[in-house]
Design a binder for these strands. Structure first.
Lengths: 336, 336
DNA sequence: TACTTTTGCTCAAACGATTGTGCATAATTA
DNA sequence: TAATTATGCACAATCGTTTGAGCAAAAGTA
């Protein structure tokens, strides 16, 4: 492990330059003789040489590393996302540094500082907060930034997200088709763009059906607890909603907990539709109807955009919305 | 961002050395005057200086980075583990590189090569495969290695894991207390130590109850599909087991799927107990009795051990088994 | 006044790679 | 044979930081 170009140079008698060129595959370009190549390669093999990437990074001013900032690494949705991103980056010979902002803007700033100090070649982020300024500056002056899942509507930062509006519309329309009129929605972080779009879809679909007066949006966090508490309150309302639309998988679990505690059954006593997809949702009783985000496609596209940007040394300004899938299960009662 | 010690040196008139010492908090130690400190700090502030960590790493031969290799980044169990490890490392000013071996030894070797080339200061790994040699060599010659979850019985590499044996015993005893005699077990990767220990616990508890003849172990993968297929077969056996013990959460989901397809109900027609804990298990119908691993404690201890090793420049040889929790729910029928 | 100690700072090497340029020698051509 | 071109390699600078050693000038002491 103490093997360097210099030690190989000494062993073989060739200069560090020559050794470097052979080992970095530039032998052809710099006309290194077959003989020299062979000797150098054999010595490198023998001593198990592994180039010091730190030194290379310093010299080339490239780290072959990307940064990934997520609001919650352990959330299954983001765990899936990171899994795909890590794999995609890896297939391009890049390493990923995953950081957790824990839904806090100050943590997020610390994450950014870490990534900038480590001179990553690009950043993929599901941002928290409402101010795009810091990412815009980085994107303009330093390294490319691609937003994923969450984005800033007023900014021209590139992003890949689900078509959250149509997801909201689809969810509500399916409820309306089943005769529901009194549909409540439990939201997550109010200021996040996906949340806003889903709410917009919900409201538009309700309005289209002439149900403006029944619009009811509660909650403020993408968490189980939020789902639980808000559902408790919803179940006490008069009239009680016949259906609940939860804007995340965690909120859905909280809602289920509250519904059970009230001794009620899904879908007989109340219907439920959720955003997000997780395999376990099919194993709940009943399986939950849901709006599934194309996580793998989103992750792959985000990486693709990032590398376009890195390799071209230009910024992209692509904004992509991928269509969600509606997965119909048995958590919605037909009231007609 | 093009700000370096050298540019600050030029602006302020102090040498690069002095600037470096002020900015790295060594002013006291090297008797830099208050006046000089102030000037340098102000200039650094003004131009928004951020040290080039790559250069620092090269010079100090430390990267303040640890590597984490997992068999499946998206598996909720490992997602939880990585979340805690990332946070713990971060609180010690370390960055984590997460890599996915995808349960393949050749991938695992590639991961190791990546981490060594990047000169991480230490490695935490839930290894796959049965050969500890490569990790032993790294641990001996290069950087400290701590195993987590999975480990090698014959090796003296340090590890933190669950007491999988007692977990197996507890699961089976609880079934036996409920009158079960015909208990099948669906395992994961046969060669992994946790799997072996769980099986050993299962067999010991069965034997203690005089049920050697009823011992039945099937399966070979920590996956939903394995759980599904093996359960299909188990349900066709004669006599059919009255209870199934699945060695992971994914296997449990597969078992549930097969049981449902057969038109059977848990626990009325068959009982189920699983290894691993996930919040959604409480929301299944019925909630699943399970052996919960202390993921957070394991992660924190693994990080603690790693840093002991890094900071002391010595290897630790601690081997820790943490007691699992038995979470009793309604997936087990009392046959008596 | 002369010597010692402290203060405040700089020099220059080092970490390990990459890379533009240059220089012999060998091979080719005229 | 002389001029030209091709071949094969090495020199030395560079990336931005850290750090042991050293050296004036200022302050303290005798």
């Amino acid at each position: 492990m103490k093997e360097t170009l210099s030690t190989i140079s000494q062993k073989t008698g060739f200069s560090v330059t020559t050794v470097s060129r052979v080992l970095s595959g530039q032998a052809e370009k710099y006309r290194i003789s077959e003989r020299a190549r062979k000797i150098v390669l054999e010595e490198a093999e023998r001593c198990n040489y592994s180039p010091n990437i730190i030194a290379r990074n310093l010299r080339t001013n490239k780290t072959n590393t990307i940064g990934l900032i997520l609001p919650s690494v352990s959330n299954p949705y983001f765990a899936d996302l990171s899994s795909v991103i890590i794999a995609e980056a890896n297939s391009r010979k890049y390493t990923t540094i995953v950081l957790d902002s824990m839904e806090s803007e100050s943590n997020q700033e610390a994450c950014i500082a870490t990534l900038m100090a480590r001179r990553v070649d690009g950043i993929i982020v599901a941002p928290c907060g409402t101010d795009p300024a810091i990412f815009e500056e980085i994107n303009k002056k330093h390294v490319p930034v691609i937003l994923v899942d969450r984005f800033y509507e007023e900014s021209d930062l590139p992003y890949v997200t689900t078509n959250n509006y149509s997801g909201g519309v689809e969810a509500i329309n399916s409820l309306i088709r089943n005769g529901h009129r009194n549909i409540a929605c439990i939201q997550g972080v109010k200021t996040s763009a996906p949340n806003k779009k889903r709410i917009a879809g919900y409201k538009a679909a309700m309005a289209d059906a002439g149900l403006e007066d029944n619009i009811l949006v509660v909650g403020n966090e993408f968490s189980l607890q939020n789902g639980y508490l808000e559902t408790k309150l919803l179940l006490n309302r008069n009239p009680r909603p016949t259906a609940i639309f939860t804007l995340s998988n965690t909120i859905a679990l909280g809602a289920i907990k509250a519904i059970r505690e009230a001794g009620m059954k899904i879908p007989d006593d109340i219907s439920l539709i959720a955003f997000d997809n997780n395999i376990y949702m099919d194993y709940l009783t009943p399986p939950i109807s849901r709006i599934s985000q194309p996580v793998e496609d989103m992750a792959k596209l985000a990486v693709k955009l990032l590398f376009e940007s890195i390799e071209s040394h230009n910024r992209v300004n692509t904004k992509l919305e991928l269509a969600p899938d509606f997965i119909s299960r048995e958590s919605v009662k037909n009231l007609e």
